[in-house]
Nucleic acid binder design. Structure first.
Lengths: 146, 146
DNA sequence: TATTGTTATACTCTATAACTATA
DNA sequence: TATAGTTATAGAGTATAACAATA
């Protein structure tokens, strides 16, 4: 596994990416935990931000089993963050979408994440930030596979 | 929460970082799962790669409670990946370190991660990869806080 | 028959609280 | 008293297998 130093000075690009990712996950995790949300629940808010999906589609986004989704959606629904509705075109399918409370919470937490991450990106000039965004975007365009 | 598109074209630098991080976590998760290791267990292999730490220190690295560490170390120890030993200078403390099997597995999985992530970074030229590493390193140097 | 979703079950991960042993 | 670690307990997250309903 990639080096996990206290004083982060990555030895390779791969290490830099992995360390950055763990740092980002730590931020998301903390902000989520402050609101009793797991990383996965937080991500559901991000995914459903501008979409209405079936259970199976949502599971595919997250890379989880459909049975796992049932539990996840149960708990989020119980908290009033999202809702289920029968699909219009398939009697077997169930749509999931955010409630107003879910949208509102997602936006609030996204602002916190942006603020937190900005503290790091502020170490870079505007031009460098633009470069970083471009490089990451191009990486994402050729998806990380296994 | 940050946008979580199927077709990833991040709208902002923050979204690019978050999406990259989820993609990296997906890779780590898959490679871990193929070897019955959680993300956290995988990370332990990375952290102990070149260190011997006390339980509390390891917990601090991971941002977990010490009671959580006991369970994680129990399971990894049972699998022969790491070992415990009483600390030399403090009768209360317990050191944790990788066994040969743990080192070997960590190296093998790291190679897989590097190979997988390379598929994405290969979309960038050598100069761009160097730039990306530099920018991420400088971000990491000013740690992401909450 | 195949697919969508839920339920039952089991295990890991995680935190909180209570405890033991050492400092 | 304070700190290091473990244990007990409870809840969330996850997968596998079996099931009901619909296609």
């Amino acid at each position: 596994m990639a080096r996990q130093p206290i004083d982060p000075s990555p030895e390779s690009l791969v290490d830099a990416i992995v360390q950055t990712s763990f740092a980002a996950m730590a931020v998301l995790n903390t902000i989520g935990a402050d609101n009793d949300l797991s990383l996965t629940q937080l991500r559901v808010l991000g995914i459903l931000r501008d979409r209405r999906l079936r259970m199976t589609e949502l599971a595919d986004y997250l890379g989880l089993e459909k049975s796992t989704m049932s539990g996840l959606v149960d708990r989020a629904e119980r908290r009033g963050l999202l809702a289920r509705a029968p699909s219009a075109d398939d009697g077997r399918a169930v749509d999931v979408f955010l409630t107003d409370a879910g949208v509102e919470l997602g936006e609030r937490l996204y602002a916190q994440v942006a603020h937190s991450v900005s503290r790091s990106t502020d170490a870079l000039s505007d031009a460098e930030q633009a470069t970083l965004k471009d490089l990451l975007s191009r990486m994402l365009a050729s998806p990380v596979r296994n």
